[in-house]
Each structure stands twice: as C-alpha cells, then as structure tokens.
Amino acid sequence: MDTSVDRWLTFEGLDNVRDVGGLPVRGGGRTRSGVLLRSAALRAVTPADVARLVDDFGLRLVLDLRSPVEIERDGPSAVARAGVETVALNFIGASREILPEAGDTTDPVLRNYLGYLSDHPANVAEGVRRLAAEDAGPTLVHCAAGKDRTGVLVAMVLDAVGVERDAVVEDYVLSATQVEAIFKRRAEVLGEPVPDDIDVHKPRAEVMVAVLEHLDAEYAREPGRGGPEGGAAGWLRTNGLADADLERLRVHLTSTG
C-alpha cells in the first residue's frame, strides 16, 4: 500500500510536512486533503512558508505538542505571530524518567508512546477534541521532529475515524525518510550535533502496531453498545470524548466520494 503519493509538501524552513489526506478508510472512502497537516517544529519557517500556510492552505489552528521547555526556548513561531491560533498540548510526563522494572523488555519507544497517553490523557483528548469541533478549520499538528508525539496523535485520529490499519502505520513510518533532514535543520538552527546513528531515531512500524494493539485490548467498547470495538476510539471515549465528537471528527476528516 502506497500512502505517500501527492502528500509530501516542501517548504523553505519546515521539515517532515505532509497532508494526511488520501488515506483509505475501512468500508470505503478516503481521508480529506486540505484538512490536517503534520510537520516538525515551526521555529525556522520563512515569510514565504507562513504565507503559503495561511493564504494557500487556509491554516486556522496549530496544535503544538512540544514541552514547555522547548516552547520557551524557541519563543512564538512566525505562524503564531501571523495570527494563527496556537494551542500548546504537552505530551511528555513523568513516565519518561522512570526506569523499567527488572526484566521489563518493553521497547523504550513504545514505553514513551504509551507514556504520552497515560501521563497527559487530557492533552491528547483535547487535541482530538479540537479537530472534532463544529467550527474546526485547517489544522497543523507538530512537535519537535514531527514523528513521535505528532505520530501518536495523528495515528490516534486516523484510527478513530476508521483509516485502514496498514495505512495508519505506513503514514507513521513515512517520517523515517525525513529524519536526517530534521537533524540537519536542528544542527543549523540550534547548534545541536547530528547523531552518529540516525537509524535509531527512525520510526519503526512494529512500534505503532503495538500501540494500536494495546488500545484494542485495553479499550474495547462495552458489549451491547454497538459501533467499532477498541482502538483509539475506545481510548478517546474513556477519556471524555462523546460519540458525537467522534462522528464529527469522522465527517470532518473523511469522504465517501
């Protein structure tokens, strides 16, 4: 399954940018283009990038998933200064600092991802709620590299609206092709050295598969209530989203045409 066609977007100062439109939905249909973008941090966007996002894409909302420390270091983005509403939703919490118990062989990246959901469930749910709002407009979601925190939130959204699992995972893995460029940009802007081993920072399909399987197992819908079982939708219901929110999200992001 190729989910990358016509979804990559090239900007002067912004990396790992793609539209999540065009992905196949279970039972038919596709995700809509021009509704949701995902990217790395906005710290180096140029005036031309801002104009393209605001004027061409019609950007109305940015969901910034970085930590308070990252946000304070970089200051407001040029996109925010242009008047686009920017909502900070930190995903990183205490579980990132907890060492695994003796004998715990859980993949550390998987542990981090599940930590986002356990440490800051209200922020994860709020990100989805914003996308499901009645007046929701074109939105961009980003973190630092646009692959981990952004990858988890986008996967939750895509799974909740019924995107085929293979496509959810493949969209997540696509960021692997951009990791080197992301680190080179960070070196230019922040002066951080490029890691010696780039490969260890690349998204791996098995990690996102494990996240989604965990959600299936832990958050299945109660018997007799109807509708899809488990997955991100089950987690989101448990954490405060109503069926009406999830239906608006589905209508907003998918098309049967």
Rank of each mutant, 00 (worst) to 15 (best):
G83T: 09
E85T: 14
V87W: 09
A88M: 08
A88I: 02
N90S: 14
F91K: 05
I92P: 00
G93A: 12
A94R: 12
E97S: 14
E97L: 13
I98A: 13
L99N: 02
L99E: 10
L99T: 08
P100A: 05
P100D: 11
G103N: 01
G103E: 01
D104I: 00
T106L: 08
T106C: 03
T106N: 03
T106S: 05
D107V: 04
D107A: 03
D107N: 10
P108T: 01
V109Y: 01
V109R: 06
V109N: 04
L110K: 04
Y113R: 05
L114Y: 11
G115S: 03
G115Q: 08
Y116M: 13
L117G: 05
S118G: 06
S118L: 05
H120D: 04
A122Q: 15
A122D: 14
V124P: 05
V124M: 15
E126P: 00
E126S: 11
E126A: 10
G127K: 06
R129I: 07
R129P: 03
A132N: 05
A132F: 03
A133N: 06
D135Q: 09
G137I: 10
G137T: 07
P138R: 04
P138N: 07
P138G: 05
P138D: 03
V141Y: 03
H142G: 12
C143S: 10
A144D: 05
K147L: 02
R149S: 11
R149F: 10
V152I: 15
L153I: 13
L153E: 12
L153H: 12
M156D: 14
M156R: 15
M156N: 12
M156S: 14
V157C: 11
V157S: 14
V157I: 15
V157E: 06
L158Q: 15
D159R: 10
A160I: 13
V161S: 13
G162Y: 13
V163A: 07
E164G: 08
R165Y: 09
D166C: 08
A167I: 11
V168M: 10
V169D: 14
V169G: 09
